[in-house]
């Protein structure tokens, strides 16, 4: 498995996204420490993959952070911390780092690096640095692999989605969303999460 290079819709080609997913991380506390110390070698978004439900979920956060970067609207230190913050349904930055960022207990880790004109980063350099500093097994950044890592209970709690897809009591014949329940359910969950993320910070 190698680093994946992604270009998002409506993002200038100069802002390339690099993503790598790891499992069985053994040095999470070391990596966490580098972030706390502000080590500039570690300019990554280090995301706890257990609270990511799909690629789209992660890409949505990246898109929002990059769009905010382009609009000069970053609320946190840089685009990488902003990616972690963009996963949050609320405006508490410290809380968003605790919930979505790497912690000493993290075992599955999603690493995102945004290459920008002011700080360009080449894929090979990122890959070789990650291979050196992350003690874990690099895996495919795919929906299937992510799903196996996801802590659904925690995700639903964070996004306050405890009643799955619009079950708010009052006998609901669920005629609204088709037949095929399970894949439909996780698509629906994803949609609700994207909505919460998009509305974060909406005041006025």
């Amino acid at each position: 498995m190698a680093l994946e290079c992604i270009n998002l819709e409506h993002v200038p080609a100069s802002h390339t996204i690099h993503a790598a997913l790891f499992q069985n991380i053994k040095n999470a506390s070391f990596l966490h420490q580098q972030l706390l110390a502000g080590n500039t070698e570690f300019e990554y978004a280090l995301i706890d993959a257990s609270v990511i439900i799909s690629r789209l979920h992660a890409l949505a956060a990246i898109y929002r952070a990059v769009n905010d970067l382009l609009g000069n609207k970053l609320r946190s230190r840089n685009v990488h911390s902003e990616i972690v913050f963009s996963l949050s349904p609320n405006n508490n930055i410290a809380e968003s780092f605790r919930r979505f960022g790497i912690s000493p207990e993290t075992t599955s880790l999603l690493v995102i690096k945004v290459s920008t004109p002011s700080s360009p980063a080449a894929g090979e350099d990122i890959q070789s640095h990650l291979s050196k500093v992350v003690d874990g097994e690099q895996v495919d950044f795919s929906d299937g692999v992510l799903r196996a890592m996801t802590d659904m209970v925690r995700v639903k709690k964070i996004y306050k989605l405890n009643y799955s897809s619009g079950v708010n009591g009052r006998g609901k014949e669920n005629a609204v969303y088709g037949s095929d329940r399970t894949s439909q359910d996780s698509k629906e969950l994803e949609m609700l999460i994207l909505g919460s993320m998009a509305l974060r910070g909406a005041t006025n």
Partner: peptide, 18 residues
């Protein structure tokens, strides 16, 4: 829209906004 969607009313979901 997000309120409707959460409550199971059939509406388009919100992806992003600026």
């Amino acid at each position: 829209l997000t309120k409707c969607r959460r409550e199971g009313v059939p509406v388009p979901g919100v992806y992003a906004l600026d």
